[in-house]
């Protein structure tokens, strides 16, 4: 164990993946998760308040 245990995957992805079929669209679930996360991250970046703004107001 030790190092080798740490280096092995916690989640084993070495099996045939699941695929989403929407009409002509075929998408692996892993890619869908990545793309979904990108959209969520983008929208969060737009909406979440950016820290530091308070400092500026109190400052000058």
């Amino acid at each position: 164990m030790g190092l080798t245990g740490l280096l092995g995957a916690v989640f084993n992805l070495d099996h045939v993946g699941k695929y989403i079929h929407w009409g002509f669209i075929q998408l692996s679930v892993s890619n869908a998760i990545v793309i979904g996360l990108m959209i969520v991250t983008f929208i969060s970046a737009l909406f979440l308040p950016f820290p530091g703004r308070r400092n500026r107001k109190e400052g000058k």
Binding site: L13, H15, V16, G17, K18, I25, Q26, V29
Partner: peptide, 19 residues
């Protein structure tokens, strides 16, 4: 493994990894 051209395979990866 869902990697063929007509399966949108270009963006897929072996196993369940994102491609």
């Amino acid at each position: 493994q869902h990697l063929s051209g007509d399966q949108w395979g270009m963006m897929n990866e072996t196993g369940s990894y994102p491609g």
